[in-house]
Design a protein around this nucleic acid. Structure first.
Lengths: 122, 122
DNA sequence: GCTATTAGTTAACTTTAGGTAACTAGTTAC
DNA sequence: GTAACTAGTTACCTAAAGTTAACTAATAGC
């Protein structure tokens, strides 16, 4: 007890827990589109974001994928879906209060991506 | 000039740039393993991290995937690979100075993952 | 010579993520 | 009645991601 080996084992265990937590994040937010959708929505929280508008805003995403990803995000309480009584009907998607917890992550990823392009150019 | 439409277009454009940057990040760090490997390495910068040790530390990763992902990360200047003159030979992987730029991202993802599990449990 | 360690590689396979295109359905305008 | 808008859905397919297991090669101990 109190040995170096024990300390090592404790750290090892807490490391595993961290990796498990990150695995969860990756499962939920991973793939080609989810973080892009979240970022798009956080950039326009004050406006209405209907399906077609989001699709136009995110280059290359198909209706099928957008629909599927939005469903997943809704299940994970990240976005809400509200049907608007307009002609033709529009469906509004917006980020939830809880969903804003992802903003620090996307902020970092934007910064990192910008910086990495610089870095690699050498 | 100076119209609402113009402002909107400018914001639209900067949003696209952000999404492009994040796409880069996702391309480089996406998938099941890369961020886990980076996290594992940042948790033990002071020690030697040879291939087998990393594989034991990250549940479920195969030699093939670990090898491939480490190569990718090396290409992107995130980790260095050094052959150690031990018997049997060991190969050490460590995070680069530049690679530490990813720590804020993995920190966030660990926190987010822990928090999300709580959230969903309701 | 057999076993075990290291660090991978290779081939063969399965799974899943994602793409494409055609389709439904409700409404409006011409 | 046909075209156009909205928001999807469905079926079919491909390509990429990932898994499994067997193998190489160098070295050491028994």
């Amino acid at each position: 007890m109190g040995t170096v080996k024990n300390k090592e084992n404790v750290r090892e265990a807490s490391c595993k827990e961290e990796l498990t937590a990150m695995r969860d994040s990756i499962d939920i937010l991973g793939g080609k589109w989810k973080l892009l959708i979240m970022r798009y929505l956080t950039n326009r929280t004050t406006e209405s974001n209907h399906f077609k508008k989001i699709q136009r805003g995110i280059d290359g995403i198909s209706a099928k994928m957008l629909s599927k990803e939005l469903k997943d995000l809704e299940l994970n309480l990240m976005v809400t879906r509200t049907i608007q009584d307009t002609r033709p009907v529009t469906v509004n998607y917006s980020i939830t209060e809880y969903g804003t917890s992802i903003i620090p992550v996307t902020d970092m990823l934007v910064q990192w991506g910008l910086n990495h392009r610089e870095k690699i150019r050498d």
